[in-house]
């Protein structure tokens, strides 16, 4: 059959068949209309909301079916196909507080002063998301955790001034996470958190 004459019908994206992470942008349940999904060959996946600039969904097992995105006229949002990991709170990773016990602000995305810059991929194809807030530049990525324990989130913050003195805190995605001051060492600091599932 000549190529392009008939549709073959299987549009499920299968990162396990790849040796590199797969990036797929789509409307996605739980992550909105500007989701950038990252599927790992190791079977643990994450979606970054490029509108609000935070991680939105993590899951494992099957990744995403692209059929509705690519072929359906109505473009019904895709959904994570596998087993969902812990629900991630809807909030930004950095905020300015008077003290660590202050409530974390509700505002997200540009309303919180954030600006999306895109992403770069590492040598192995993992996207590192780039955004900034008030002069602080952020690199934010998720990779499979060792021993199949979920995802390891790495976030690097770079700035010129004294971020801690300006009241900047980092708050991880774990529901039990506590704000930690952003203490820059030679202009940078990295936080790591394990998202177990």
């Amino acid at each position: 059959m000549p190529e392009g004459l008939l549709q073959t019908g299987d549009y499920e994206i299968k990162p396990e068949k790849s040796d590199r992470p797969v990036v797929f942008r789509t409307f996605l349940e739980g992550a909105g209309m500007q989701a950038v999904t990252v599927g790992s060959p190791k079977g643990v996946h994450a979606a970054f909301d490029a509108l609000e600039m935070h991680w939105a969904v993590v899951w494992k097992g099957r990744f995403v079916d692209a059929m509705t995105t690519w072929e359906e006229r109505a473009m019904t949002p895709a959904k994570p196909l596998g087993t969902l990991g812990p629900a991630l709170p809807v909030r930004m990773p950095l905020a300015r507080l008077k003290s660590a016990s202050d409530p974390w602000p509700d505002a997200c995305g540009e309303a919180a002063g954030y600006h999306y810059l895109g992403y770069r991929t590492t040598k192995d194809g993992t996207p590192v998301f780039l955004y900034e807030v008030d002069g602080l530049k952020v690199q934010d990525t998720m990779i499979p955790a060792p021993e199949g324990k979920g995802l390891l989130r790495k976030i690097t913050i770079t700035g010129a001034g004294d971020a801690a003195a300006a009241g900047w805190y980092f708050l991880g995605v774990d529901t039990k996470a506590k704000p930690q001051p952003v203490i820059l060492n030679k202009g940078t600091v990295e936080f790591e958190e394990l998202i177990k599932f």
């Binding site: 409307f27 996605l28 349940e29 739980g30 992550a31 909105g32 209309m33 989701a35 909301d49 509108l51 609000e52 939105a56 969904v57 949002p77 809807v90 997200c108």
Partner: peptide, 9 residues
């Protein structure tokens, strides 16, 4: 607009 979990705009 389409209603979708995770989309607040």
């Amino acid at each position: 607009p389409v209603k979708l979990a995770g989309h607040r705009a």
